[in-house]
């Protein structure tokens, strides 16, 4: 008896789930004009807006005083699986306390080795680096793929290290 009931139950469940699937695609089909997600890229270059989670390239945001939040702690360098980040740091004397202090000299980033895995951004304790929304980095010279992320003359923002 249970075999017979399960036979018919299978048929009804199959029809029910198939209709559920057809409802979903039917909604997409009838609302295609509104819901289409394809970007017609070269034409809409000016208005193209990338989604928030898009990973373009590693950048270091600077504020209007040319200050960033990088302490030169090398956490991103250690986290990088490809060795595409090199931190060159320096020691300077702190004018307030007179003690020697470690600061960032150059944050070197090799885009040619980067897989955009986001691990350096997770590792950064001060949120100094983040993924940009830009793309189109094809180039004829691979030297241009090695970038220094901190701008020349920039300093660490006050209060980041406390």
């Amino acid at each position: 008896m249970s075999a017979i009931t399960s036979y018919f139950k299978d048929i009804f469940l199959a029809i029910k789930t198939l209709i559920t699937g057809m409802k979903v695609t039917g909604y997409y089909f009838t609302h295609a004009r509104k819901e289409i997600i394809t970007q017609q890229y070269p034409e809409n270059k000016d208005t193209l807006k990338m989604p928030d989670r898009f990973r373009g390239i590693v950048t270091m945001p600077h504020d209007e005083n040319n200050e960033h939040s990088c302490t030169g702690c090398s956490a991103c360098e250690l986290a990088c699986p490809n060795g595409s980040i090199e931190i060159m740091w320096d020691r300077i004397e702190d004018p307030d306390t007179g003690k020697k202090k470690k600061v960032i000299d150059q944050h070197v980033y090799h885009y040619s080795m980067c897989t955009l895995c986001n691990l350096c951004i997770i590792a950064c304790p001060t949120d100094a680096i983040k993924m940009a929304q830009t793309f189109e980095y094809a180039t004829f010279d691979r030297k241009s793929l090695t970038m220094v992320l901190n701008k020349p003359g920039s300093k660490i923002r006050k209060g980041v290290e406390e």
Binding site: T25, Y28, F29, A32, E35, I36, I37, T38, Q40
Partner: peptide, 9 residues
């Protein structure tokens, strides 16, 4: 039709 079902153009 396939494109519209898959939200493509």
């Amino acid at each position: 039709v396939a494109a519209f079902f898959q939200l493509r153009l």
